[in-house]
Structure formats: C-alpha cells, structure tokens
C-alpha cells in the first residue's frame, strides 16, 4: 500500500505538487491521471526518494522509502524508460539490477522472458531499442526483484496496442495476487482499461479521486435523439427536471441516471436513438473539464 499524505513540493515560487493526499491500495491498480506537467512525475520521484518534498510524506507499506533495506525487492520502480545507459545491452542492465538486489543470475533470463524480450533483443545495446522495448526493459527492472508494490510512470508510452494489452494483463495479475500498482498516464483511455481506482491531478492539485466505477457513475448518461432537431427540446425538458446537460458528440450528456433521462424523454415525446451510461465518453469529458482550468489548452477552450 502506498500512502501519500499532504505532499507539497515547491520550486521557488512555483508549486509543482500542492497538498496531495491519496492512497494506492493493495490488490488494486491505481491510475494516476493528469495532463503533462501536472505533477505526476514529481510526486512519483518523491515517493522513491529521488526528490525531497517541501512538506508532507509518502509511506510504502507504512515505511519511508529510505527505510527499506533493499528497496528493489519491495518496490518495483519505472520512472523513465529512456533513462538507461545507451551503451549497455538490455541483459546487462537487468543483470546490474539483479546483482544490486543480490538475486541469482537465472532471474535475468526469466524476467526477460516475462516481459517478452527475446534473447537476441536482450543482446542488443539499448541505443538500438525502440521506446516500446525500453518500456519492457524498464518494467523488467521493476519486476525482477519480485516486489509487492509497483510504481510506474507512463509505462504504456510507446507500447503498441498488443503491448498495452500485455501490460494490462500483467498489472491485473499482479494486483490480483495482492500487489499494489500505481501507474501514471496523461491518456485517459489508456488508464481506464487498466485501473480500478483513479486519482486525477491538475496543476499539482488533486481534482478527483475514487474508484473507476464511482467516477464512471458520476459521469452520467449519454443520450442521442433520433431527430437532431429535437435535441434542444430534450435539453429543455431535462433542464426543467433539474438535470444539468451538456452537448457531446452530437448528443447530450446528462448528470442523471439513464432511467430518469428516458422517462423525461418519454414525457417530452422525444424519440431516442441512443440511451446509455456515459462511461468512457463521460469520464473523458470530466477529465477535460476537471483539468480545463489547469491545462495548457484551457485558455483556448
């Protein structure tokens, strides 16, 4: 379990992380979501002792990271897949990690196989690796110590769709075995398919957190009318029923459950073409909305 308590990191007048608190629970995959520069990486670097917080603390299974006597065996960390020595082979990088942790050499080949890097790929120098291969190697470094906690910064970056699916299954399996997974991303749909819990951060502040199911429920209902001209009519009807709506993808997103929206449409005599929980679409909109005031694109929107 990872517990972040009132974490703040200031660089001069700039506050990169602003009073952030959340928990990544054991047995669950926690997605750490936010636009670029929101403070995800800073928070993760603080977790593993690479950056000192201004105030607040992070504990992993109740202890400070620096109190762990051999951290690689307890916490698997991938902060940047590109931060590997370009002149070393993949196998060598993994062998160094194994040696540092005091693991037998056999673990290197096992772990390479586990992340899907072939023997020939492992003999190549990292400068010849694609980003996807570097990610796999980075994940291998995180996994080799067989830790109970994983902290992964943008691990899906550069992976192809098959790679993302592989990683999803890997992290799912890890969490199902009682492990704690915290992974960050700036892409909602990437994290949506993997995470159980979501922590959304914008400009250093947490703007939403909860289980994915909760946040999806909060995302409301998506409704499309058969005749686009009737959409305004439905919006007005919903407004009279005190339901907040906003247009989305040639339809409406309503802050209500589908039953209420259907009933309202029926009473207003509007024929519907589609009526369902907004799910991803709603969550994405929520994500953009929550981060709009903080995101770079906010000014334009």
């Amino acid at each position: 379990m990872i517990s972040v308590e009132h974490l703040t990191k200031q660089y001069g007048p700039f506050t990169a992380v602003d009073n952030v608190s959340f928990t990544a629970a054991a047995g669950r995959v926690t997605g750490f979501l936010g636009p670029n520069g929101a403070g995800k990486s800073t928070t993760m670097r603080i977790m593993v002792g690479l950056t000192r917080p201004s105030t607040g603390q992070v504990t992993i299974a109740g202890r400070d990271y620096r109190e762990l006597v051999n951290p690689g065996l307890e916490v698997g960390v991938l902060l940047d897949a590109s931060a590997q020595h370009a002149g070393r082979t993949g196998r060598e990088i993994l062998a160094i990690a194994a040696q540092t942790m005091g693991l037998p050499k056999s673990r290197v080949a096992e772990t390479l196989a586990r992340v899907g890097l072939t023997e020939t790929e492992a003999e190549r120098r990292v400068r010849n690796y694609s980003l996807g291969m570097r990610q796999r190697l980075g994940i291998a470094t995180a996994l080799i110590g067989d830790p109970q906690v994983l902290i992964l910064d943008e691990p899906a970056n550069g992976l192809d769709p098959a790679g993302i699916r592989w990683m999803r299954d890997l992290l799912r399996g890890f969490a199902d075995q009682g492990g704690t997974v915290l992974l960050s991303s700036h892409l909602l749909h990437e994290i949506e398919v993997i995470a159980d819990d979501l922590v959304v951060i914008g400009q250093g502040r947490i703007v939403a957190q909860g289980s994915k199911a909760e946040l999806l429920a909060a995302a409301g209902t998506l409704v499309r009318t058969a005749d686009p001209a009737q959409q305004d009519h439905l919006a007005r009807a919903l407004h009279e029923a005190s339901v907040v709506t906003n247009p989305i993808d040639g339809g409406l997103r309503a802050d209500a459950d589908p039953e209420l929206v259907g009933e309202t449409a029926h009473r207003a005599g509007v024929v519907l073409r589609e009526l369902r929980a907004a799910d991803g679409a709603g969550l994405e909109e929520m994500f953009l909305e929550l981060t709009a005031e903080t995101a770079r694109e906010g000014a334009a929107a």
């Binding site: 593993v48 690479l50 690689g72 940047d80 590997q84 990690a97 540092t100």
Partner: peptide
Amino acid sequence: TGEYSQRTGLTTYTLVPW
C-alpha cells in the same frame, strides 16, 4: 557523471536510495 549524463542515476539511486 555516467549516472547523470546517461541518467542511469534514476535506477541506481532508486535501487540504493542512500
């Protein structure tokens, strides 16, 4: 300097945070 120029320090200091 290899730890910084090649950024391997990210892994080194994570595996050995002292």
